[in-house]
Design a protein around this nucleic acid. Structure first.
Lengths: 220, 220
DNA sequence: CCAAAAGTGTTAGTGATACACCCATGT
DNA sequence: ACATGGGTGTATCACTAACACTTTTGG
């Protein structure tokens, strides 16, 4: 290949969302290396020459945080010439959704700490990551409205109010539980899994998803 | 910057749509250089080290085809390791919408020909451009449904049936003209510009967009 | 018996769809 | 006068939104 032009570097950065402690949270890592050493940033890193973009996103996420097997979606590619002080770095932004119960965070060499932050109380972020996160949040709300991605935030079995709580947290707004249940059940996506026991109130129905969670149905 | 890893190349490829001769058309170029010399491809090329992705898309489009001042939107970034025989090339795909009356196509050094093709009768395309085009088409239909991008395909003044024809061509389906006009007018986006003269039937109302065409209103 | 959350139906309003006839002009 | 597209209103249907009481369990 003729090397006519200088090449940019390419990274993948991932905005990982979860719902935890009745808040929408995003996973940030504390950088162990310059630039922005000791600053909080989205997990991510350089795309290797022999891996696809999605593989790079998955690998970085697992390497830096231990998070794997998640819903992953490409968002947008940010390529301003000045977005990285090291030189020309283009980043392909991804969004991931996880159930935080299944996740053990870990620190590594590149990353001295990894923590969940409420989207309402974020620290100052490295690079242009604040802009990427804002974009991811917009996309998250959009996807919630028109698809069934919300199920990616649940465990395998859940009750209707678990799902409703997630919608209410993401949209920061209450829904009527009769209308909510009616709408969800009309989608015909849920399988009844019996009654949840050992609750100190009327026992609710447990549900699971009929289809594999990988298939995101457009409910529009 | 530490050169720890080999870098990929980055290109921008643009799917330009127009409506012409009662068909939805896409702009293709005949490659003047290897690989895929003399094959049809989407216009595009390498992103320079000192230009943003969007600037690269605009520049390539103008260089290869003379097309400029168009609606331009980033679609998706394609990064399979084997998508280009020259080596690792990641491409950021863009979609553009133009009114073909305002466009004069031209050939250049890199490109021996540039032509509009009906999306129903496409030649075999270079690289993974067929997949990119399929993706662009999906996005186009989606955008038509939920935003006012359709106006980007019109000239400044137009009649209601011009707009309806564009929707009918993009969705390949007829709409009722009463319902169509009712819906469009209810959006309160149009300004009346008087009556179109010299038609051999009842003279229709001419409209223009109230807002700058750059602002794409979400009509959802 | 009290607290907590679960479950459940009806009504009103809004927006989408289906549908047919007369109008203004050029030739 | 004829051909061509332009312009217009109403009725039905489907979906959404608002709204309150009873049930079941644990403590």
């Amino acid at each position: 290949m003729k090397e006519k032009y200088e090449k940019p570097s390419v990274t993948a950065d991932i905005t990982v969302f979860t719902v935890k402690d009745k808040e929408l949270k995003v996973l940030l890592v504390k950088r162990g290396l310059e630039p922005f050493k000791e600053k909080w940033a989205l997990p991510g890193g350089f795309v290797r020459i022999d891996e696809s973009l999605e593989d790079a996103a998955k690998r970085e996420l697992e390497e830096e945080t231990g998070v794997k097997n998640v819903y992953l979606e490409q968002l947008y590619t940010f390529g301003d010439t000045k977005r990285d002080p090291r030189g020309r770095v283009i980043t392909v932004a991804y969004m991931a959704l996880v159930n935080s119960e299944n996740i053990k965070l870990k620190a590594t060499t590149d990353v001295s700490d990894a923590r969940w932050f409420s989207v309402g109380r974020l620290p100052k972020l490295a690079f242009d990551h604040a802009g990427i996160l804002t974009y991811a949040l917009k996309r998250l709300r959009w996807k919630f409205e028109y698809t069934t991605v919300a199920f990616s935030l649940l465990q395998e079995n859940f009750v209707m109010s678990d799902l409703q709580r997630i919608y209410e947290i993401v949209f920061d707004k209450k829904f009527d539980k009769r209308n909510f249940a009616k709408k969800i059940l009309s989608l015909d996506l849920l399988k009844e899994e019996g009654i949840k026991k050992d609750v100190s109130h009327r026992p609710p129905m447990l549900y699971s998803l009929k289809k594999d969670i990988g298939e995101i149905v457009e409910i529009i």
